[in-house]
Structures are given as structure tokens and as C-alpha cells.
Simulated scan of single mutants.
Amino acid sequence: MGQHAHSHQEHTGQDLVAEAARALVTAGEQWTTMREAVFAELARHERPVSAYDIADNLSAARGKRVAPNSVYRILDVFVANNLALRVESANAYLANTHPGCAHDCIFLVCDECGEAAHVDDEDVSRAVRAIAAARSFKAERPVLEIRGLCKACT
């Protein structure tokens, strides 16, 4: 089986922001102007971005300081509702290009350039969940990170 070819649509630009808003409201959360600004800033980046970078960019764009703690709280809501993916080892985030589609996070993280490729592999996800279940552990949000060098950096 291996890598799973998703039948859902990958969203970009304003379409991605609109889809994220729809998914968050459907989940019973509010879509505020600040959440929209944070998500739009996150979605603008192709590589993982930190809450501090988002806060700095929003502060510059708005002409007033945006606290990183506020951005972290919003990102936590996004991760909990599958609008963003967290690259744990880098403490950085990526916008989920298919909000509302729940799957495990498998990242290939380049130690040289910082690129993080998100991979969906149903076989790996099933195996990880089976390992957890065999130990009476309920896996809520599996995240696997494989560190190394991307093709461009090798």
C-alpha cells in the first residue's frame, strides 16, 4: 500500500484561508480576524515557521506589536483542529493544505536547509498506532520526524 494518494483537494492562497475558516467554524471554534491573520501568515510559508517569526511579521505588517504568546495560543487551536501541523523538533509550524482531513504527521526534515516535507503513509500510520495499542496506549496525534538531508542538499 505505502504512500496514500489523497482524493481530497490541496488548497492554496485565499482558497486555503477560506477552507481553514470553514473547517474551524465547523469544529465549533470562532474564526477571528487575528486567527485569520495568523493563518494567512502561516500559509504564506512553504517551510516550517516559528511563532516568533509569525509574530514579528504580523507586528511589522500591522504597525503594532503582536505577542508571540498570542500566536502560540492560536497555533495550538490550529493544530488541535488540524489546520496546522507542528514540526516538533523545530518548534515550527506548517499550514495543513487540506484542513479537516485527519491523518498522522510524517515529516522528512532537512538538517541543512530546514525544508520539511509532509508525507502521508497509511501503512506506517497503522503500524505506529498498532504498536501503541499493543501497549494499551491510545495514540491521539502521532508525529514522526525523520531527520537528514533533502535531495537538493545531498
Rank of each mutant, 00 (worst) to 15 (best):
N57A: 15
E88Q: 05
T97F: 09
N57W: 04
H103L: 00
R47Q: 13
N69M: 07
V79F: 04
L85C: 10
H4G: 09
V17P: 03
V49H: 04
A95I: 05
V49L: 02
L24H: 04
A60G: 04
N57L: 09
N91H: 13
V77N: 03
N57P: 01
R47D: 11
F78G: 03
T12K: 10
T32V: 03
L16E: 06
V79Y: 07
R47Y: 06
Y52G: 15
A90I: 01
N96R: 13
L16R: 06
P48C: 03
T33Y: 11
A40W: 00
A5Q: 12
L94M: 13
N81H: 14
G100R: 08
A92D: 04
N81C: 05
D76M: 02
I54E: 11
A21S: 15
V38I: 14
T26C: 00
R44G: 11
R62F: 08
A80R: 07
D53S: 10
A55I: 11
R44S: 15
A60H: 12
A80G: 06
L94A: 11
A67Q: 15
T32Y: 09
V49K: 02
T26I: 00
S59H: 07
C101W: 10
K64T: 07
A43V: 01
E46S: 13
L85G: 05
E36Q: 14
L42F: 11
D53I: 03
A84P: 05
V25A: 08
H6I: 09
S59I: 06
Q9L: 08
R65I: 01
P99K: 00
K64Q: 11
